[in-house]
Design a binder for these strands. Structure first.
Lengths: 134, 134
DNA sequence: TAATTTCGCTTGCGATTTGCAAGTACAAAG
DNA sequence: CTTTGTACTTGCAAATCGCAAGCGAAATTA
């Protein structure tokens, strides 16, 4: 999974090599917008990710430093995932994706409310979000 | 390529179904930041996309209305691709990706200059970019 | 005008990745 | 000490990717 050879020096290309697939950003989304933070939580998401794909993505996201894996306070067998600073810094990317989707399709009410707040004052909203996620 | 069944109503998930792969956004990037607009141009990009993958992505990006295909003014066999309004509206997504990449790795000088302008006044910069692309 | 090159793809095929189902390891609860 | 819950791993068929070669039509060259 850990791609050794870079295709180019382009930041867009490098970013896509890390999370350019149909699943990685959904894990980031879950960690960002919902309280979902365990392997089992991610499996319950609407998109129904396969167990092996989830395990592989969690591993690679951890390897590139976007998420970190810690013991869940409740029990020793439970693992808890959370966004690192690098992961939290993806908030603007996620919101611009949602903003774009909102412009060209119908998005759920809940996300629409959040989006409104984001658009009203992007910088302030991002600062608050980042603080809350830490 | 045209996925018929949506995985969920989540805007992030829906967006990823459209361009969530290692190549689609590179085509958008080329149309956005360089003068590359033909099939042959895209093939020349550093990342070396395969011909069949390129053809498939161009087709699906056209189907979802992000790019449009027209005859090149120079010759009848040449095809010219350009971003639609929907494609141009992806400018903020691309810039936030570049901004994130800049924070956690080294990006080329050229992009750094553009990024600086973007960060200085995002709204104004986006407006100008969109105008220029049309 | 006949041969050659250019351009935008398509095809074949082996290698990789995905997605589904089932299984495993192991801590905790009963 | 059996059962349950949690986090994965494994096997395998199907889909997708990536490389090389080919193809048809327009343009260029001889």
């Amino acid at each position: 999974m850990a791609d050794s050879k870079k295709r180019s020096d382009c930041p867009v290309s490098c970013s896509l090599e890390i999370w350019g697939d149909k699943w990685s950003l959904l894990i980031v989304r879950d960690l960002m917008f919902t309280k979902q933070c365990t392997y089992g939580d991610f499996l319950k998401s609407d998109e129904k990710i396969a167990t092996n794909i989830l395990a592989a993505r969690l591993k690679s996201l951890e390897e590139v430093g976007i998420i970190e894996r810690t013991e869940h306070p409740d029990s020793k067998r439970k693992m808890s995932y959370k966004l690192t600073t690098k992961g939290v810094d993806m908030v603007p990317i996620l919101f611009e994706i949602i903003a774009w989707a909102d412009k060209y399709s119908t998005i759920p009410k809940e996300q629409k409310t959040l989006l409104k707040k984001y658009k009203k004052d992007k910088e302030a909203f991002i600062k608050t979000s980042i603080k809350e996620l830490k």
